[in-house]
């Protein structure tokens, strides 16, 4: 009973300490997701889908300042609508924005396909890297999205992943140092962790590790029960006469 109280006090102390020091450690949660690498000259900048407001803008700056020669954009699977489409699909908006920002049309390469997720876009990038064996690519995406993208790149491209680096686009809707103080910041950081976990399960080794871990817990529980049961029957009260 005393041990339980000590355990409860330790848990309360740890949780209280973490809550009191949240301003110190919470920024590291966001920082861990950002794996942007130092800039280096590349043949392509690849604009990841889902951030039409800011990702193409940074890609256009990279082009204008000579860091990349061409810009890759992916065809994004359109969301069906019951009414007539109000606006063009996202890849067309991205292309129009890039051109408005000074990127010539012949420098924009469209990756065809119904891309609906980061993983699908990296599959298309693999085809580009296979076709151009010496090409280097800068992936342009939100800072918080770089770790999941890098994970997909390493997972799908293998040795070709060395030819890919990442440029993190700063967030406008929240401050990464205080992300928990805004709904969008809270959503972005927590959802990235959930998505990373789901990627690990769906595409990575998680689909083996998680059942193994559950199996191990069940096995340990069964062993504990077995030995407790044996001890119960081996006490003097239950020893056969």
């Amino acid at each position: 009973m005393r041990h339980r109280w000590v355990a409860v006090l330790v848990v309360v102390a740890v949780v209280g300490g973490l809550a009191a020091a949240h301003q110190w450690w919470l920024p590291y949660l966001a920082g861990w997701l950002d794996v942007s690498s130092p800039l280096r000259h590349a043949d392509y900048a690849m604009v990841m889908g889902g951030g039409v407001e800011n990702r193409p803008v940074l890609a256009a700056v990279l082009y204008r300042k000579g860091w990349v020669d061409r810009i890759l954009i992916s065809e994004i699977k359109p969301v069906p609508s019951k009414t007539r489409p109000l606006l063009p699909p996202e890849h067309e908006l991205t292309k129009a924005l890039l051109m408005r920002l000074g990127v010539p049309e012949d420098r924009i390469v469209l990756l065809r396909g119904n891309h609906a997720a980061t993983f699908h876009e990296i599959v298309s990038l693999r085809d580009v890297l296979v076709e151009s064996p010496s090409a280097r690519v800068l992936i342009v995406t939100d800072s918080l999205h770089t770790r999941r993208t890098a994970w997909s790149v390493r997972h799908l491209l293998g040795p070709m992943a060395d030819r890919v680096s990442f440029v993190g686009v700063p967030s406008e809707r929240y401050d990464l140092r205080r992300w928990w103080q805004s709904g969008d910041g809270f959503f972005m950081v927590t959802s990235e962790y959930l998505k990373l976990f789901s990627y690990w399960i769906i595409y990575g080794s998680g689909k083996w590790w998680v059942p193994m871990f559950i199996g191990l817990i069940v096995l340990l529980g069964m062993l504990r029960r077995h030995f407790t049961h044996r001890r119960t029957y081996q006490t003097p009260d239950h020893t056969p006469a």
């Binding site: 800011n54 803008v57 300042k65 929240y174 103080q181 709904g183």
Partner: peptide
């Protein structure tokens, strides 16, 4: 909302990237 978001201007993006 606790913190007001600060939209970036095109110049802000420009300042982020040095010349190659």
């Amino acid at each position: 909302p606790v913190v007001a978001p600060q939209p970036l201007s095109l110049d802000d993006f420009d300042r982020l990237i040095p010349e190659c």
